[in-house]
Design a protein around this nucleic acid. Structure first.
Lengths: 339, 339
DNA sequence: TTGAAAGCGCTAACAC
DNA sequence: GTGTTAGCGCTTTCAA
């Protein structure tokens, strides 16, 4: 037997008793079902207010089979990209009366499938943000997670809407930008090996290099933080390049700061680009050339797609949505020095 | 009548039927209740695996009266301070097997009480982060939200644990730091009027000014963003001060950038301090004097307090916990110019 | 050690 | 228009 109702607890039964009607009638009133006599409805409402009745969403969810909650799973809640995506989803979902249950997989690839399905049981649907698990794993559990929407995981998972920033396009635009400025010796300051978005950049740059045999493209390890850019200065100078494409704005700013300390002039001696176009980027010295991405908009669109699935609206248009970053050329890039 | 069990759905009843036992026995097995015969337990477990049985947490929550979920309500999910607090709570709660349901009140003070109690019905407890509502409102609903824990709301709410950064102490340390460097004309670049943490800084600075009649302290409006600092340059120069205490690091960095554009030397002409000690602060030119706060630790401690409440452990020690920021003197502050 | 049965709080089909 | 009743999926008391 379940726990006895605690004496203080005000449930639908208490309201029904106090108003002299059946629980069903109270339920109808609370749900705005207008087959209820206006007088009775008014009385029920008044009693509910007096008793400070708060419907228990658990009971409701159990019988209705829906929780009006969606789960968002991110690899790292401390990462600004995922924070922005979460914000976009949460704000958009809230407008439609949905709540967000979050889970931070802490980059533990192996836990992701378990975490996701655990999450799914408590929610009406799941949004997976940049999942690290293999495509085999992902495809394997996709069915059990539906409704499922993917953010920043551009793999083709059948029947699964996916919203991703086209990092490959962005980094190519940046590469072409410095190419057009005459640079032929270019370095890419790589992001974390595990990062999907780094992998995408890498692949695109390899294509770029293949298409431009006149360009010498170097790949240097760095990371995703300001510090990693700052400590990559020596590597960059040793490489003897005239332009550096950093993994993101933070890395670029770290590099900028390191180069400044060495007395290397930007963009006269070396051109530097970032990625993401964070608000700071316009204010560095010199202002940072970057590629703007609006990951919160991606999150918002992911929600809208989820909403469609929840409403069982027939899917329209393609499942795969790609957001192109916008090139923001600024002072940190200039003509290649005449060598 | 509730929705009929969908034919595909695997519930505890399906497992019980397949294993030839009662639902009660399956329940006992799933919950590690060892009054079950080892053979039967093994068979039940095997059947559960074969059928891929996933217990429905909703049914469980309903009967147990707990969801193993806590709610975190923040005024703005885009604010780095609240993101960090959320991260701290979420990571710590996850270690104890709890999930986090988030709500962004979007700075709508009036909605906060409703949002909070709505949240509370779905969760076992609520953590309110920097709630904007009045102390009257807060005290009014506190009882109905318990277990309740407060972050960055140092008001005395009876019986309610509260964890806050002592912004007043931090800004006073910064003020004393520039005072000790000989500055007598100091400006405070104020944060958003609504921000509680701004209010605290303001009050402390007024105390500081009263205690140091030799100091002329000016209050200048700014905001919380890089841009607001950048566009406050004229105000600062007009004020004719030799030291500026910015609301936070972002504002300070904006100011630094603006001063640089004007050819004003830092710290030779003007000293500048930030607040928060974000990772960037060590890398600006010159490196920024700041006050370090670890809001994620605050979040973590808030969770631990909540965990104690959930376990009904007798509260020990004080309810109110204050975290002192640590002064980080760096190159952006120096001796006052000789006037 | 196991099963039957009640009940957590709610909704909805059905009967009146 | 309203009440009765069954049932959502689970746990737990009680009896066997």
């Amino acid at each position: 037997m379940g726990k006895k109702a605690s004496p203080g607890r005000v449930g639908i039964a208490a309201v029904a008793a106090a108003a002299g009607v059946s629980p069903a009638t109270v339920s109808r009133v609370m749900n705005g079902n207008y087959t209820v006599d206006a007088q009775i409805a008014a009385r029920v409402r008044q009693v509910a207010t007096e008793l400070n009745y708060q419907p228990n969403p658990l009971g409701r969810s159990l019988v209705l089979g829906k929780t009006e909650t969606i789960g968002v799973i991110v690899p790292d809640l401390a990462n600004p990209t995922f924070q922005a995506a979460l914000h976009g989803v949460s704000r958009a979902a809230a407008k439609d009366g949905y709540r967000v249950l979050i889970a931070d997989s802490a980059e533990t690839t192996s836990e992701e499938p378990i975490l996701s399905s655990e999450m799914r049981r408590r929610c009406d649907g799941v949004i997976l943000c940049a999942p690290r698990m293999s495509i085999e794993q992902l495809s394997g559990i996709a069915e059990s997670l539906r409704p499922l929407v993917l953010i920043n995981r551009p793999d083709d998972v059948p029947e699964t809407p996916s919203f991703s920033v086209d990092y490959g396009h962005g980094i190519t635009e940046l590469a072409e930008h410095v190419l057009s400025l005459g640079h032929r010796h270019i370095a890419y300051l790589a992001g974390p090996a595990r990062s999907v978005s780094h992998g995408v950049r890498l692949a695109s740059l390899e294509k770029f290099a293949a298409a431009h045999p006149e360009v010498e493209l170097r790949f240097l390890e760095a990371g995703s933080s300001f510090e990693s850019g700052h400590s990559a200065v020596d590597k960059v100078l040793d490489a003897g390049v005239t332009a550096v494409l950093a993994f993101n704005d933070l890395v670029a700013m770290g590099l900028l700061s390191g180069l400044h300390e060495r007395g290397v002039k930007v963009p006269e001696d070396i051109s530097v680009t970032g990625f993401d176009d964070i608000p700071f980027a316009s204010y560095t010295m010199p202002p940072l050339t970057s590629a703007e991405v609006s990951i919160d908009v991606v999150g918002e669109r992911a929600w809208q797609s989820m909403r469609g699935l929840l409403r069982k609206e027939p899917a329209e248009g393609p499942l795969k949505h790609t957001f192109e970053p916008t090139l923001r050329p600024r002072g940190s890039t200039g003509p290649a020095p005449r060598g």
